[in-house]
Design a protein around this nucleic acid. Sequence first.
DNA 1: ACCCAAAATGTAACTAGTTACAAAGGTTGC
DNA 2: GCAACCTTTGTAACTAGTTACATTTTGGGT
Lengths: 343, 343
Amino acid sequence: MKPKSPEPKKRSNLRDVAKAAGVSVATVSRVLNEPGVVKKDTLEKVQAAIDALKFVPSAAARAINSGRTRFVGALVPTLDNAIFARFLAALERELSAHQLSLVVATTDSDLEIEADKAQSLVDIGAEGLIITGATHSGALHDLIDRTTLPTIITSFFDATNPLPTIGYDNEAVAQLALQHLADLGHRHIAVVHGPVHDNDRTRARLSGLHALPWDGELTCYETQISLRGGAESAKRICGQAQKPEAILCLSDVVALGVLFGLQAEGVRVPDEISLVGVDDLPSSAVAVPAITTVHLPVSQMGEKAAVALARWISDQERPSAERLDGQLIERRSAIPNPSRLTS
Amino acid sequence: MKPKSPEPKKRSNLRDVAKAAGVSVATVSRVLNEPGVVKKDTLEKVQAAIDALKFVPSAAARAINSGRTRFVGALVPTLDNAIFARFLAALERELSAHQLSLVVATTDSDLEIEADKAQSLVDIGAEGLIITGATHSGALHDLIDRTTLPTIITSFFDATNPLPTIGYDNEAVAQLALQHLADLGHRHIAVVHGPVHDNDRTRARLSGLHALPWDGELTCYETQISLRGGAESAKRICGQAQKPEAILCLSDVVALGVLFGLQAEGVRVPDEISLVGVDDLPSSAVAVPAITTVHLPVSQMGEKAAVALARWISDQERPSAERLDGQLIERRSAIPNPSRLTS
DNA sequence: ACCCAAAATGTAACTAGTTACAAAGGTTGC
DNA sequence: GCAACCTTTGTAACTAGTTACATTTTGGGT
């Protein structure tokens, strides 16, 4: 027989504290939540008991009463691309200002993984979800539907989507970049983009490019969204019989990779070939030559998403879609096509 | 009077489902947790009721019984430096394999913010903590102490720390880089490093440099850890009367920034000046010239931290300190000092 | 000293699950 | 035909807080 403490260490709870302080549980609860209404010396007694027992209130028990867990989840393809890291940084900063914590889950751009991780987020009690793009698995849509979990789509603007979207018009964003090159007189342009599979942002950008009326020619190269992917694409492009006059990269990591790749091949940018990107990462401003790109307000997107989600959760105010505009930032990597007379 | 449903929409719970299916709450609970022991047709009845009521079990109620919330928190200075983003990516991947989610909080290298956010993590029920570096506010130490929350220090190896550390010996890491430059015959070296305030990793690296016995001269430049900070430092260095023979950057983002800064100033690397970094970010391998650097196994660190924390939480196995070694990766940005005859 | 309101505290019923134990139902052996 | 056992289900007591309401204490005014 072992009648005495077989498990001596166990987190102390409200009732332990109440007993130790010689008060009721309600009083302890008040000390925790509205110390103002408790008489000074009972407050001190209770505080002493709390300290003595190293009492830490249980988050779960609080959550069960308030119905609030105070955290939300975000699903992004990867953390390896600075564009998402920057987005999350802004999101976390603003959520934190609204007393919300952020659970991060990466999906590797796989819709099944995404749905799985979303389920985990629900299982642990996320009060809301931030997801990337508008294309998702049926399982995820079901989950959002049955839980009626506040969910915001980012990086993708689409006013007709049943879920609120906060993001850019990806078609327009890509067109900004292409139009700029067209205006500079380039007619033979290589497009370097990330995987199209499971990525509706890239698909939208590509279809934007193809929808733009102009008289030039596009050659597309698909690669991994990484510096290495960009560098390898540059090599591939340099291996072609006829080099393009300009290269358009649908993301800045790739653009920087392409720049490095071209430098390694001894091709001068922008003299021999112009280069534009999309994203406007800090690296694009600092690179030599600085890379002309389409600025995407990711930090603003993170903030807006955070505010919208926080409001949705606390006030049931369902946000409406918000369109953020890209902006062309002219730098040194794209110049007028020297082999053409543009007015 | 409003006796009828004044609030028609409320999440349904276990008892609602039990009532709807005509069974007891225990049976519904079994359907959820051990469907094997339930007779087939009751199982179907219950499942039907669950679907009909769109029942989703409450995470908080589960947590209150199991005592497990299934998530941990990580405190990092920033997401803007790829080194932390990569660390978190690996951490999240491995935690996810252990059925744990990751709450990310950024501290901006401010110990007060760090303590605040740690408190938030505890408030929402984190089962464990990953923190960066060994220097923290008293409030954070108190918190860890009173909650006895499994907490692992990363990016900093110190076998004598009361908390388990998983990381590099920062002094040694910096020495690897400096020794390499010394071996190449450089005697006048500029060191570019991030803010020293509240950052024990940087401090350790600097003291490592100063502890290395050699006959050269170090000039230190403090700057923000960013591309821009690096580029500006390069300009500052070029403005000196006597240019150093080599530049040692204590992180790779800064190294790349310095490279860009030097290129902008028309200084050729490595011909006129050698450059080495620390971290081994992907950009260092792809940059032109590729940057010689000390590889830090961040992904491995993320994985090891995840495994150690997961085990600590589930099996009460307190991990022991783990030292990860940096490794010099020789690339193109550092060459023998041309102005000297090194055998 | 006494009344009354305000302030402080206590009781017990909630929140939404899990689970030990009890009880009922069904099957098999002899 | 009935005991013995296994399968399946139900009851009620847990988990750790919050909170409506009841009760006690306190203080001021007369």
